[in-house]
Write a protein that binds this DNA or RNA. Sequence first.
DNA 1: TGTGCGATTACG
DNA 2: GTAATCGCACAC
Length: 201
Amino acid sequence: MTDPLQIRFERSFFARPATRVARDLLGCYVHRRIKGKEMIGRIVETEAYHQDDPASHSYRGITPRTELMFGEAGYAYVYFTYGMHFCMNVVTGAIGTGEAVLFRALEPVSGTSEMFIRRIKAKTERDLLSGPAKICQAFDVGKPKHGEDFVYAKNLYLTQGSLRSNEKTLTTTRVGISVGIEKKWRFIIDGNPFVSKGRTS
DNA sequence: TGTGCGATTACG
DNA sequence: GTAATCGCACAC
């Protein structure tokens, strides 16, 4: 397993079509620090959402909930569903387009004992981050406690990484992205090795 | 103001 | 297979 490089992304990385960002995020790292304890997960499955996809929240245009998806790329779009679960996206694309990439599964890299604290029902490491709502539970990402929107920005971030195509991981049997088109799910195995990215701020 | 259902998870 | 559980979007 590759060590996290701790190189952050520039906003321009996210200001591209969701399908591209979803692919390029595979192998990258999600960091979450709570009270000095850091948790890291490696992205092994993503899902791209955009305005033309009936399954996307942005399909019906700008609403109070989806306003974020139409805004500036790089912000976290976190939504609540089934009355109990939160799921996290990163907003992509140009301002005015309703796009985002959902973090569907991560491979635990470090801070697993901290993850188990919040993932009460997880029995194995594989259970920790193998689903979009599990990621939010493990990382304690959900409704802002005091009514703020972006309180997590300082402690939740992404860093660059890479991935060998068709690599098997702890949490998934298939590494890749999926794109929803008219409620039919197309799963795309990532076949393109990542080019190295220059250092960013 | 009412209602149907969801980008899910866990358990039987 | 299905309960849990509530906010959102749209119908009325």
